[in-house]
Each structure stands twice: as C-alpha cells, then as structure tokens.
C-alpha cells in the first residue's frame, strides 16, 4: 500500500454565492509528483487557495499525514508542512533576494534539508544577485526565488501554482530541471499548470480539472491525447 501524504475528500468551495469547487477528491502519495491541469477558471487556483488555508474549508475535507487541516489558517498550514509557490511569484518588493528566501523559514524550527546554501546550490544564479531587490530580477530568476522561498520551510508538500506562466520555454526547462532534486529532498509535489506539455513531463500522475471538478485522473502514459483534450476543453461535440 502506498503511503498517502495529502488526501482531499469531497472538497467544496464558495466565493459568496458562487460555487467554485464541487466535491473534489484527490490523493497525493509520498514522493509523488502530481500535475493538475485545466483551462483558466477550471478551479485550480481555488483548490490551491483551499489547501493553503487562504480559503477556509471544512476541517476533515483536507488531511495531511492523516491530520485534518482544512480549517487551519495559512500560517498553520505552512507549519503543518505544506508550502506554496504562488501564482505570479509574489516576491516581496521591499526585501532583497536573500531576504525573500530567508523569509520562507520564518516559522521553521530546527534544521532540514533546505538551507540558504542548499537553495544557492540549486539555483547558483541567485547567490550572485542575493543583495538585489527581489523584484529587480528577471521573471525566471524571480520564479527561482519563489521556489527557494517555499522550500525553506522544508515542506512535506510543495505546491507550485502556474510556475511557467509568462516565461520563455528555455527558462521553464531550467526551472523544471530542479524538480528531481526537490523530490529527492523528500517533498511531494503538486504542480498546477495550463501548459499541458510541461506538466506531463514532470508528473507521475495527472489530474485534469474543468468547471470545479476533476474530470480525468491517471498516469501520464495511460492517458490518451484525446482523453486529455476532452477533459480539458469539455467533450467535443
């Protein structure tokens, strides 16, 4: 039996009267890399907001290592072991590159695999620019800072929301090149992508979302292009 890190059962989410998620079920095995794909507005970002505690959920709907975390606040979810690379990177403009990375360890107690040096080892370019303001970097480098920042809490689960958005293919490849090492460190990964090709390359399991539901789930090799296409855009007439 595989060891489950994160399990989501019948998760719903609302923005006021508008329902954004309809009974989402999801299981993330330890060490797994899961890709969630879907078009704009499919509910991917809402799912991320629910997992990280920005959007409150029923406590039991989300469990981390068997512990209900749905009702926790964002800082509590981070301390429980889930960290996030948010969409649009959202570096802190008042902080330098190094401070942006260090702040990821704000509430960390004790040591772990990821330290400032380990992050610089993973993305050497950041070390050269560590005293620059975080927002003075190129988009790709900013994304590296955001990933490094999220790793600094030594998470059990790393969530990456649209990390390839707005970046050139060659830079996306560089960033994804870091993922094997991230997984070696023991973190399970969920990547949310609109870019199906990238997602299929790094993931060993794929979920496709549409209109607030998971419409398809399986290993990348098992899913046909047509099935993914249908799940992504809705069944073609």
């Amino acid at each position: 039996m595989t060891d489950t890190v994160l399990s989501i059962r019948n998760l719903t989410a609302f923005y006021g009267d508008f329902q954004a998620l309809f009974g989402v079920d999801l299981t993330l095995a330890r060490g797994q890399a899961l890709a969630i794909i879907g078009a704009n507005g499919a509910g991917k970002s809402t799912l991320m907001r629910a997992i990280t505690g920005i959007l409150p959920s029923p406590a039991e709907a989300i469990q981390l290592n068997g512990r209900p975390i749905g009702a926790l606040s964002a800082p509590e979810v981070l301390e429980a072991g889930i960290s996030m690379v948010p969409e649009g990177r959202r570096l802190f403009p008042s902080l330098t590159v190094e401070e942006n990375i260090l702040i990821g360890a704000h509430s960390r107690i004790g040591n772990g695999y990821w330290t400032l040096e380990a992050i610089y080892d993973l993305f050497p370019v950041l070390k050269e620019r560590r005293h620059n303001p975080g927002t003075a970097l190129s988009g790709g480098q900013q994304q590296m800072v955001a990933i490094g920042r999220a790793l600094m809490s030594n998470p059990d689960v790393l969530l990456c929301d649209e990390i390839s958005l707005g970046l050139a293919p060659v830079i996306i490849r560089d960033i994804y090149a870091a993922f094997p090492r991230i997984r070696e460190s023991g973190a399970s990964v969920i990547v949310v992508e609109q870019d199906i090709g990238q997602a299929l390359k790094v993931a060993d399991h794929v979920c496709c979302m549409m209109e607030g539901r998971i419409t398809l789930s399986g290993a990348p090799g098992d899913l046909s292009r047509d099935a993914i296409h249908d799940a992504y855009f809705g069944v073609s007439a």
């Binding site: 981070l78 960290s83 996030m84 948010p86 902080l95 702040i103 509430s107």
Partner: peptide
C-alpha cells in the same frame, strides 16, 4: 532583523506573508 523582515513582507503583501508562516 527577522522581525523587521516580517514587518516589511507583511506591509508589501499580507496574504503572501501568511503563506510564509507570518501572522
């Protein structure tokens, strides 16, 4: 200081600061 870093981060973007474990 670490506290000052948290001050500045929160001032920049309180929601993202929450994702970093800052209250």
């Amino acid at each position: 200081t670490k506290l000052g870093r948290a001050f500045r981060a929160t001032s920049d973007d309180a929601v993202t600061a929450g994702l970093m474990g800052i209250r």
